[in-house]
Computed example of a mutant assay.
Amino acid sequence: MDTLDMGQPRTPYRRRLLGRRLPVLLAAALVLALLGPFGTFADLTLAQRLAYWVGLIGLGGFAFELLTLAATRRLRERPEAWRAMLAGVTLAVAAPMTLAVALLEKSLRGKDMLHPLGLAELFVYVALVTVLVSAIPVWLELRDRGLLAAPVPAPAPPLPDDAAATPPEPAFLARLPARLGRDLLALEMEDHYVRAHTTEGSDLILMRLRDAIAELAGLDGMQVHRSHWVAAAAVAGVERKPDGKLVLVLRNGLRVPVSRSYAPAVREAGWAEKTGP
């Protein structure tokens, strides 16, 4: 993964928020409500504890999202700063949350902590809870952005002369998650993302289709539609629709439409002569 791609999420924001972070925050609020730390178990009913912790965790999560989104705009070209930024955001959220907890404690349980010593003590507890609750969302965000440290491989031994002549692997393949392997079948455009299909599955990569195709130089394949690119080795057969349009059937069963403007190139490559499965 090159420097410009590092730090860019591979999963759309809405999916990261609704499918990952919100469930983690809700689970944390539920656990805290059941355990009732910091005296809330003795002083509050279960319903009150649920409202107490869901409200605080929700407010803290909202502040975390706002600060993270604001920092994202400043760190587009500085992926190496993401780890420090997320750590700073986690601590920055603890400051306003300390004041919010102090006000809530005074109104709900009559505890006056709105003085320097009380706020300092409360900040330690709030920071601890913030770090614990944020640990999994922060880890998921770093993993999605490809920023978790990987072992540094040992230097490769010098290649023999015949191996040195082997063409390098297309740059795009290095963007594929390890779980997808390197047997690329097709690319499919989805909004601002490219969905890469391999024999092991598919995943979204944040880049334009034309840029992805440019990085596939040296790999036998072609664009067959304004939203699709297909590897030559992936084509298992061809279907013809009643209107004469072609549909490529890939080895994994995926069907890819061929637009009329690309049909001549597909026929010239001999793909149209392949028999469907």
Rank of each mutant, 00 (worst) to 15 (best):
D2Q: 09
T3C: 10
D5L: 15
G7Y: 11
G7E: 08
R10V: 01
R16Y: 05
L17F: 14
L22S: 06
P23C: 01
P23D: 01
L32P: 04
A33V: 04
F41H: 12
D43Y: 08
L44D: 02
L44V: 06
Y52L: 10
W53P: 02
G55Q: 04
L56M: 04
I57Y: 12
G58T: 00
G61Y: 07
A63R: 02
F64A: 13
F64Y: 13
T68E: 03
L69W: 11
A71Y: 03
T72K: 09
T72C: 09
T72F: 09
A81G: 04
M85Y: 05
L86W: 00
A87C: 07
A92L: 15
M97G: 09
T98R: 15
T98D: 13
L99M: 13
K106Q: 15
R109A: 13
R109S: 06
L114H: 11
G118W: 08
T130P: 00
L132W: 12
A135M: 00
A135P: 01
V138W: 06
E141W: 13
L142C: 03
R143K: 10
D144Q: 07
D144R: 03
G146M: 09
L148A: 10
A149W: 08
V152Q: 15
A154N: 08
P155L: 02
P155R: 09
D162L: 08
A164T: 15
A164Q: 15
P167G: 05
E169Q: 14
F172L: 13
A178S: 14
G181N: 06
D183I: 10
Y193Q: 03
G201C: 03
S202M: 10
R208K: 13
R208A: 14
L209M: 00
D211R: 08
A214T: 07
E215R: 14
L216S: 11
L216R: 12
G221R: 03
M222T: 05
H225T: 07
A233I: 03
E239L: 11
R240L: 07
R240C: 07
P242D: 08
K245P: 01
V247E: 09
V249L: 11
R251T: 14
S261A: 13
V266P: 07
A269N: 12
E273P: 04
E273M: 03
T275D: 12
G276E: 15
G276I: 11
